[in-house]
Write a protein that binds this DNA or RNA. Structure first.
Length: 121
RNA sequence: CAAGUAAAUCGCCUUAUCGCACAAGCAUUUAUUGUUUGUGAGGAAAGUCUGGACACCAUAGUGCAAUAUAGUGGUUAACAGCCACCAGCCGUGAGGUUAGGAAAAGUGCAACAGAAAGUAUGUACAGGUAAUGCUGUAGUGAAACCAGGUAAACUCUAUUAGGUGCAAUGUCAUGUAAACUAGCGUUUGAGCGUGCACGCGCGAGCUAGAGGGUAGGCAGCUAAAGUAUAUUGGUAACAAUAUGCGUAGAUAAAUGAUAAGGGUCAAGACACUAAUUUAUUAUUGUUUUGUAACAGAAUCCGGCUUAUAGAUUUACUUAAAUA
RNA sequence: GGCUGUGUAGCUCAAUUGGAUAGAGUAUUGGAUUUCGGCUCCAACGGUUGUAGGUUCGACUCCUAUCACAGUCA
């Protein structure tokens, strides 16, 4: 299995995103917060960093790259489970600049929590 | 040697593995997947302060208002940029810096102090006269017998300028409410023609409120007033010619992650050498730890401004003091 | 990406065409009044006028740069 995260897996539709924040539920593993909603299509994922917390574009882009990379390497946790028709939004909440190691471990934790809550319900 | 001045350049590199975007080819299949190759952030990409390109709207006429610049000449597609020279100011100097037109066209303004701040003549002392603010000094103040000061006050002069900006604009697709309420108006003319008035033209709708719907794709979209070197012209900015290079196009927004090695700088430790204040400074070497500054394209170029660890190169200056 | 606008005490606002120590309400602190508290009265505290330069004798006011925060567009 190739670990990819390409154009077709990105969540882009503004309508879906609006709905996601309106009706979606969330789990968090500080400094990450994962908002999810079942929407009936293939799995879509987006990452986001607030402009309020990071003023400079360089920092925001840097964190989003780390988040994408962490998701890409850990997406095996989602495969072979019944979560392939969900829309996900991964937010970075903290105000401190992270390194890859932190993001990676927290991403694992967040995805684990997500699959747990889904399988329980 | 030290302290400076000016100009210019660079501003992490290599390898491996895994990934992202775009383009082209091949295969599979009809819009996807797989695979190969190539390309993929900056000197400021930033601020949006300016000048253009490009696009759309306007363009019978008249008047008013509004913008910006400000020594002289040159340069450029154009500019508030750049270059040269003159003048003022700062510095020992190399150099730096200046919104640097007009107060004898007009209007305004000047607190406090002062006799007096613009049709203003007064005090003390001195000088002078037939006589008098007639002359000088003092005193107040930023400015006081002068056709004064102030234009980053209005203004005048010269030059400049139609408006809006790629969310422009064109096109395809999807969807809805040509409905409702209030005001103005239909030849006695609302509104529009992108500052205002008149005029001219068009002209039956226009404005506000609450509410309903869509906010997707494609084109525009990247080869350019481009850049490096050499020669010629010019004090220079710059121009011409020749040769080489061919240079990102994302859109919840690509250019990344991990590991190893090199390497810059900083701090600590040790050793050697030199100087002298004999425990400090400096050079060199080894080693340990930390670490690459400011910062991320969004239609495209020229400039300006601001941020920027550190490294390198070239040219030039040094009065006084100390050696 | 483009185009506009606003920054004054902890908070809400003033300050005439550039003129002096930048005011008012509220909040805070102290005092008076009350048996105690509130209301009321008196006083104090609190500002490098977002920041940095410039023009001017003098700047909240004029000019330039910069920082922060809002609004707007198809």
């Amino acid at each position: 299995m190739k670990l990819t995260y390409n154009k077709h897996e990105k969540l882009k539709s503004q309508k879906t995103i609006e709905k996601l924040f309106l009706d979606g539920e969330s789990v968090s593993a500080y400094p990450l917060r994962l908002v999810y909603l079942k929407h009936g299509e293939s799995r879509k994922v987006a990452v986001s960093v607030s402009k309020r917390n990071f003023k400079r574009a360089v920092d925001r882009i840097r964190i989003k790259r780390l988040l994408r990379e962490a998701y890409r390497l850990n997406k095996t946790m989602l495969i072979n489970k019944e979560v392939n028709d969900y829309a996900l939004m991964i937010l970075y909440i903290s105000k401190d600049m992270p390194d890859f190691e932190l993001v990676n471990t927290k991403m694992k934790k967040a995805l684990e929590k997500f699959t747990d809550t889904i399988s329980k319900s």
